[in-house]
Computed example of a mutant assay.
Amino acid sequence: MEFKETVNNRHSVRDFKNQSISQKTLTEIIKLAQKSPSWVNSQPWKAYVAMGDTLNEIKNEYVKRASEKGNPDFPVMHRKDWSLAAQENMQQWRHDIVHHFPNFDEAHEKMSSASIHLFNSPAIIFLTIPKNSSSWSIFDVGSFAQTIMLAATDKGLATIPNYTSVKFPEVIRQRMNLPDDETLVVGISIGYPTDTTINTFQSKREPINDVLKFKD
Protein backbone atom coordinates (compact mmCIF):
# COMPACT_ATOMS: atom_id res chain seq x y z
CA MET A 1 0.00 0.00 0.00
CA GLU A 2 1.29 3.46 -0.89
CA PHE A 3 2.10 5.67 2.11
CA LYS A 4 -0.54 8.32 1.31
CA GLU A 5 -3.15 5.60 0.89
CA THR A 6 -2.15 4.04 4.22
CA VAL A 7 -2.50 7.35 6.07
CA ASN A 8 -5.84 8.14 4.44
CA ASN A 9 -7.23 4.65 5.09
CA ARG A 10 -6.37 4.67 8.78
CA HIS A 11 -9.35 5.61 10.90
CA SER A 12 -10.83 4.44 14.17
CA VAL A 13 -12.81 1.21 13.78
CA ARG A 14 -15.29 0.23 16.49
CA ASP A 15 -16.37 -3.29 15.57
CA PHE A 16 -14.13 -6.20 14.62
CA LYS A 17 -14.62 -9.65 13.14
CA ASN A 18 -14.23 -12.72 15.31
CA GLN A 19 -11.01 -13.49 13.44
CA SER A 20 -7.72 -14.00 15.20
CA ILE A 21 -4.45 -12.31 14.29
CA SER A 22 -1.28 -14.36 14.26
CA GLN A 23 1.48 -13.55 16.73
CA LYS A 24 3.80 -13.39 13.73
CA THR A 25 1.78 -10.54 12.19
CA LEU A 26 1.58 -8.64 15.47
CA THR A 27 5.32 -9.10 16.02
CA GLU A 28 6.04 -7.70 12.55
CA ILE A 29 3.89 -4.64 13.32
CA ILE A 30 5.59 -3.94 16.65
CA LYS A 31 9.05 -4.54 15.18
CA LEU A 32 8.37 -1.97 12.45
CA ALA A 33 7.02 0.50 15.03
CA GLN A 34 10.31 0.24 16.90
CA LYS A 35 11.72 2.45 14.15
CA SER A 36 9.82 5.34 15.79
CA PRO A 37 11.97 8.23 17.07
CA SER A 38 12.52 8.86 20.77
CA TRP A 39 14.49 11.27 22.95
CA VAL A 40 18.19 10.29 22.67
CA ASN A 41 16.97 6.88 21.46
CA SER A 42 15.55 6.17 24.91
CA GLN A 43 12.83 3.89 23.45
CA PRO A 44 10.75 4.14 26.65
CA TRP A 45 7.83 2.07 25.39
CA LYS A 46 6.76 -1.49 26.09
CA ALA A 47 3.94 -3.33 24.31
CA TYR A 48 1.79 -6.02 25.95
CA VAL A 49 -0.67 -7.87 23.71
CA ALA A 50 -3.82 -9.39 25.23
CA MET A 51 -5.47 -12.17 23.23
CA GLY A 52 -7.59 -15.28 23.70
CA ASP A 53 -8.66 -16.21 27.21
CA THR A 54 -6.73 -13.34 28.80
CA LEU A 55 -8.52 -10.75 26.68
CA ASN A 56 -11.88 -12.41 27.32
CA GLU A 57 -11.28 -12.15 31.06
CA ILE A 58 -10.46 -8.46 30.68
CA LYS A 59 -13.57 -7.85 28.57
CA ASN A 60 -15.83 -9.67 31.04
CA GLU A 61 -14.46 -7.66 33.95
CA TYR A 62 -14.92 -4.41 32.07
CA VAL A 63 -18.55 -5.25 31.25
CA LYS A 64 -19.19 -5.89 34.95
CA ARG A 65 -17.70 -2.51 35.83
CA ALA A 66 -19.22 -0.56 32.94
CA SER A 67 -21.13 1.83 35.21
CA GLU A 68 -18.11 2.57 37.44
CA LYS A 69 -15.95 5.65 37.17
CA GLY A 70 -12.52 4.93 35.73
CA ASN A 71 -9.17 5.64 37.36
CA PRO A 72 -6.60 5.58 34.53
CA ASP A 73 -2.90 6.16 35.15
CA PHE A 74 -3.14 9.37 33.11
CA PRO A 75 -5.75 11.70 34.67
CA VAL A 76 -8.76 12.61 32.53
CA MET A 77 -9.63 16.28 32.14
CA HIS A 78 -13.27 17.32 31.92
CA ARG A 79 -14.11 18.31 28.36
CA LYS A 80 -15.27 21.76 29.49
CA ASP A 81 -11.69 22.42 30.66
CA TRP A 82 -10.18 21.79 27.22
CA SER A 83 -9.32 24.69 24.90
CA LEU A 84 -12.20 26.30 23.04
CA ALA A 85 -10.92 24.98 19.71
CA ALA A 86 -10.73 21.43 21.07
CA GLN A 87 -14.25 21.68 22.49
CA GLU A 88 -15.58 22.84 19.13
CA ASN A 89 -13.92 19.88 17.39
CA MET A 90 -15.38 17.45 19.94
CA GLN A 91 -18.86 18.95 19.51
CA GLN A 92 -18.55 18.63 15.73
CA TRP A 93 -17.45 15.00 16.17
CA ARG A 94 -20.52 14.19 18.29
CA HIS A 95 -22.80 15.99 15.82
CA ASP A 96 -21.35 14.07 12.86
CA ILE A 97 -21.66 10.69 14.60
CA VAL A 98 -25.33 11.27 15.45
CA HIS A 99 -26.08 12.20 11.85
CA HIS A 100 -24.11 9.21 10.56
CA PHE A 101 -26.83 6.96 11.99
CA PRO A 102 -30.58 7.07 11.32
CA ASN A 103 -31.26 8.58 14.74
CA PHE A 104 -29.68 9.68 18.02
CA ASP A 105 -30.79 6.61 19.99
CA GLU A 106 -29.14 4.21 17.58
CA ALA A 107 -25.96 6.28 17.50
CA HIS A 108 -25.79 6.33 21.30
CA GLU A 109 -26.52 2.61 21.61
CA LYS A 110 -23.97 1.54 19.00
CA MET A 111 -21.19 3.76 20.31
CA SER A 112 -21.82 2.87 23.97
CA SER A 113 -22.07 -0.86 23.32
CA ALA A 114 -18.87 -0.82 21.25
CA SER A 115 -16.97 0.93 24.03
CA ILE A 116 -18.31 -1.26 26.84
CA HIS A 117 -17.32 -4.43 24.99
CA LEU A 118 -13.90 -3.05 24.06
CA PHE A 119 -14.91 -3.02 20.40
CA ASN A 120 -15.01 -6.84 20.23
CA SER A 121 -11.42 -6.85 18.99
CA PRO A 122 -9.45 -10.11 18.94
CA ALA A 123 -6.40 -8.36 20.39
CA ILE A 124 -5.50 -5.24 22.34
CA ILE A 125 -1.99 -3.80 22.40
CA PHE A 126 -1.35 -2.09 25.75
CA LEU A 127 1.46 0.47 25.75
CA THR A 128 3.43 1.55 28.81
CA ILE A 129 6.31 3.81 29.75
CA PRO A 130 8.39 3.79 32.95
CA LYS A 131 6.90 5.79 35.83
CA ASN A 132 10.17 7.70 36.17
CA SER A 133 10.05 8.80 32.51
CA SER A 134 10.58 12.32 31.24
CA SER A 135 7.42 14.02 30.03
CA TRP A 136 8.94 13.75 26.57
CA SER A 137 8.39 10.01 26.75
CA ILE A 138 4.68 10.69 26.26
CA PHE A 139 5.54 12.20 22.88
CA ASP A 140 7.75 9.19 22.12
CA VAL A 141 5.11 6.58 22.95
CA GLY A 142 2.59 8.56 20.90
CA SER A 143 4.91 8.28 17.92
CA PHE A 144 5.27 4.56 18.60
CA ALA A 145 1.47 4.16 18.78
CA GLN A 146 0.89 6.00 15.51
CA THR A 147 3.45 3.85 13.72
CA ILE A 148 1.75 0.72 15.08
CA MET A 149 -1.57 1.88 13.66
CA LEU A 150 -0.11 2.77 10.26
CA ALA A 151 1.75 -0.55 10.07
CA ALA A 152 -1.49 -2.36 10.94
CA THR A 153 -3.38 -0.47 8.22
CA ASP A 154 -0.70 -1.42 5.71
CA LYS A 155 -1.39 -5.08 6.53
CA GLY A 156 -5.15 -4.74 6.03
CA LEU A 157 -5.91 -4.52 9.74
CA ALA A 158 -7.88 -1.82 11.55
CA THR A 159 -7.30 -0.14 14.91
CA ILE A 160 -8.67 2.24 17.48
CA PRO A 161 -6.57 3.80 20.25
CA ASN A 162 -8.89 4.21 23.19
CA TYR A 163 -9.21 5.39 26.78
CA THR A 164 -11.80 2.73 27.60
CA SER A 165 -9.30 -0.13 27.56
CA VAL A 166 -7.12 1.53 30.22
CA LYS A 167 -10.04 2.83 32.28
CA PHE A 168 -9.35 0.26 35.00
CA PRO A 169 -5.56 -0.17 35.08
CA GLU A 170 -5.66 -2.55 38.02
CA VAL A 171 -7.52 -5.07 35.85
CA ILE A 172 -4.88 -4.84 33.13
CA ARG A 173 -2.00 -5.01 35.60
CA GLN A 174 -3.36 -8.18 37.13
CA ARG A 175 -4.25 -9.97 33.89
CA MET A 176 -1.15 -8.86 31.96
CA ASN A 177 1.36 -9.00 34.83
CA LEU A 178 2.44 -5.40 34.27
CA PRO A 179 5.37 -4.25 36.43
CA ASP A 180 4.47 -1.78 39.19
CA ASP A 181 7.04 0.72 37.90
CA GLU A 182 5.32 1.17 34.52
CA THR A 183 2.58 3.65 33.59
CA LEU A 184 -0.24 2.25 31.48
CA VAL A 185 -0.67 4.78 28.68
CA VAL A 186 -3.21 3.47 26.16
CA GLY A 187 -4.72 0.39 24.62
CA ILE A 188 -4.95 -0.08 20.86
CA SER A 189 -7.71 -2.45 19.79
CA ILE A 190 -6.70 -4.22 16.59
CA GLY A 191 -8.31 -6.66 14.19
CA TYR A 192 -10.21 -7.11 10.94
CA PRO A 193 -13.13 -4.69 10.59
CA THR A 194 -16.73 -5.77 10.10
CA ASP A 195 -18.83 -4.26 7.33
CA THR A 196 -21.11 -2.20 9.55
CA THR A 197 -22.30 1.40 9.65
CA ILE A 198 -20.29 2.23 12.75
CA ASN A 199 -17.06 1.45 10.88
CA THR A 200 -17.80 3.71 7.93
CA PHE A 201 -17.67 6.84 10.07
CA GLN A 202 -14.55 8.94 9.64
CA SER A 203 -14.09 12.13 11.64
CA LYS A 204 -13.36 15.36 9.83
CA ARG A 205 -10.12 17.31 10.05
CA GLU A 206 -9.59 21.02 10.46
CA PRO A 207 -8.89 23.02 7.27
CA ILE A 208 -5.16 23.08 6.62
CA ASN A 209 -5.10 26.90 6.79
CA ASP A 210 -6.33 26.71 10.40
CA VAL A 211 -3.50 24.34 11.33
CA LEU A 212 -0.52 25.34 9.23
CA LYS A 213 1.15 28.75 9.54
CA PHE A 214 4.14 30.02 7.58
CA LYS A 215 6.33 33.01 8.35
CA ASP A 216 9.23 34.06 6.11
Rank of each mutant, 00 (worst) to 15 (best):
R173P: 02
S12P: 02
H108C: 02
F126I: 13
H95A: 10
V211M: 11
P72G: 05
M176N: 02
S143Q: 15
T200S: 15
W136Q: 11
R10F: 03
N199V: 04
T159E: 06
F139W: 13
R65P: 03
S135D: 09
N199P: 09
P207W: 06
I29V: 15
H117F: 14
S83G: 02
D180Q: 09
K35H: 13
L32C: 06
S135K: 13
P161D: 09
A151E: 04
A47T: 07
K110L: 02
D53H: 11
H117D: 09
F201Q: 00
D195M: 08
N209Y: 11
A107S: 15
F119W: 08
P75N: 06
H78T: 03
S42T: 08
E88T: 05
L26W: 01
V166P: 14
F3K: 03
P179G: 02
I138P: 02
P37V: 04
D15C: 15
S137G: 13
K24N: 14
L150T: 02
P75R: 07
S133D: 04
P37G: 01
D181M: 02
K215A: 12
T6S: 03
V7P: 01
E5N: 12
T147Y: 10
F104N: 11
S12H: 06
P130D: 10
A123I: 11
I172K: 05
K17D: 05
H95V: 00
V63Y: 05
Q87C: 09
L178G: 03
T153H: 13
E182G: 04
I129C: 06
N209W: 07
T147Q: 15
E68A: 11
P72K: 14
L84C: 05
A66G: 00
I21W: 13
A86Y: 03
G156Y: 06
